[in-house]
Nucleic acid binder design. Sequence first.
DNA 1: GTCTGTGCAAAATCTTTGCATTCGA
DNA 2: TCGAATGCAAAGATTTTGCACAGAC
Lengths: 137, 137
Amino acid sequence: MTETQWHEELRAKGYRVTPQRQLVLEAVKDLEHATPEEICVKVRETARGVNISTVYRTLELLEELGMVTHTHLGHGAPTYHLAAEADHVHLVCRGCGEVSEVRPEMAEGLVNGLDAEMGFAADVHHLTVFGRCRNCR
Amino acid sequence: MTETQWHEELRAKGYRVTPQRQLVLEAVKDLEHATPEEICVKVRETARGVNISTVYRTLELLEELGMVTHTHLGHGAPTYHLAAEADHVHLVCRGCGEVSEVRPEMAEGLVNGLDAEMGFAADVHHLTVFGRCRNCR
DNA sequence: GTCTGTGCAAAATCTTTGCATTCGA
DNA sequence: TCGAATGCAAAGATTTTGCACAGAC
């Protein structure tokens, strides 16, 4: 999606294009797997005074528009990333805490099985697998 | 694990057997997928005055001992269940919010693939798949 | 000019912590 | 008795909300 496209999509739905919204989207794009707090810090590098509640409200909006998604990578705050770049499954190591990504095809069997057996449409982009990595097992 | 066994395990590690600990474990067993808050309410049905912080501390202890595990079934509080009965994968529907369970073998391909490809030992008991159920897709 | 979006502060949730007291072993 | 466990209250962390003002269109 180009910048112009989503500006138009915002306006078409009665939303406004604001610097804050552009900066938050930019930060999500740049940071990858960032928490609302981290996004807020990043945004403030460019525009001072942007409030954390604006970040939360913007992320909610962007998620509703399908532009970003979030995942729970642990106990604390969720992490956000571009929906367009979310084509992967998250792996979180309980030993070292490292987060890695693998091709979504790894989960193909699971996704197909759930669909066939119970008509459940799994969202593989939101999938996080906990476990232990090679070094920590 | 019998009641006597885990009493001994607690003592062996220098922990004490208290009514609160027994009640919390009992509540986790009975409720299935309960939040700390729900567990606290349940425990208070039997013993009045049990504090929420005791519930948190006890859940932490029981998890450390490997008796219970927790899963994030949504944005809010995590849910706890007996480790011995955790032999399933969680499915959460984004439409109706319903939580269901499926056999862990559904994820066998994913688990084997992650192991073979990158030596990652996936903890299938902690796996939660988000998506849409038959009625909501 | 209109009405949405923002900043700010306060509240709401969820969880942890310090400390005096209680109670298991 | 001795020290771990608890209750209580306060603090932390994260997220949401109400409201007046600023700013997009």
